[in-house]
Write a protein that binds this DNA or RNA. Sequence first.
DNA 1: GCGTCCAGGTCTACC
DNA 2: GGTAGACCTGGACGC
Length: 313
Amino acid sequence: MNSFRVKPVAPYSYPLTVHKPAGWSLLTPYEIYEDGILWTATRMDSGQMLGLKLTSLGTIDKPEIHCVVFSEKKMDPKAKLGLIETLTWMLGAREDINGFYALGRRDPLVRALVKDLYGMRDTNRLDLFPMLTLALTLQMAPMKRSYQMMDLLIKKYGSKIVFDKKKIQYWPSPETIAKASVKELEEKCKLGYRAKHLKSIAQSLCKGFPTYIELSRMPPNEAKVKLMELGGIGEYSADIVSPHPGFPLDVWSVKIFSLLLFNKQPEKPRESIPMLKEKAEERWGEWRGYVFTYVLNDLENLSARFNANLRSL
DNA sequence: GCGTCCAGGTCTACC
DNA sequence: GGTAGACCTGGACGC
């Protein structure tokens, strides 16, 4: 067990960052968040599982996070130092988002978002395969069905780690899925046509593919092209998975942004995606990814402001 | 109860 | 290079 403290660049809201209002988990759908404490898990590139316990010791303007890391193997001082760096990066603690907040001075939508979710951050992952799995299960399916596929995959093929009297279930490793049969993935996890894509992605990762951190060090377009080399990963999925901020519009979110920007729903949602992506880049530039995250986590407040039920779209 | 439609995309065949 | 059409599954809907 190792423990250390991370001091993020202010403003930083710990609860809004690690436990987002829209309900998306930080690292695994089975993590536990109680009374401000988050128990979660991740898998290192070596395959080793880590348990994480995060607690806030500060405030939005003077943030501090206490991290306890549980690992099966003892860590040497160099590995521990690397882990502190990695967790700081995962939590988005070094990022200065004052540029995004400055946008709010001239953009009323950003102003509203910042007021509602002051200090919320985008976060990163260590582990690429869960993001690819998530992107695949989101394709061409209502949320309920996506959750069903993710749930079955984690229960049937996932890992679990027990620490601090908590049991956390975690996503399957690429090695496990690479060994599974397509038929079993189709039938046991109800993946349908996505099964062959998931297995082929797992095999590509096992043969050698850039890690999430390596993708983050590539130019954004290069990382996206690399991700799109994987079978079943198109532009939308690459935008979801890429560590670089994108604007992953789909037929659901394009309706929300059309209402927010033009006060009307698109007649042909799928066809209006390229145009809206262009608008987002023009209007918000490098901060468009932040606008995307903030909007999707602020649908309740935005619905009241814009007099439209954005959650039911 | 049964049939039909279609969903938080991607790939392929065809022109 | 542009574009229909197929693709798993299961919930919603109309009858």
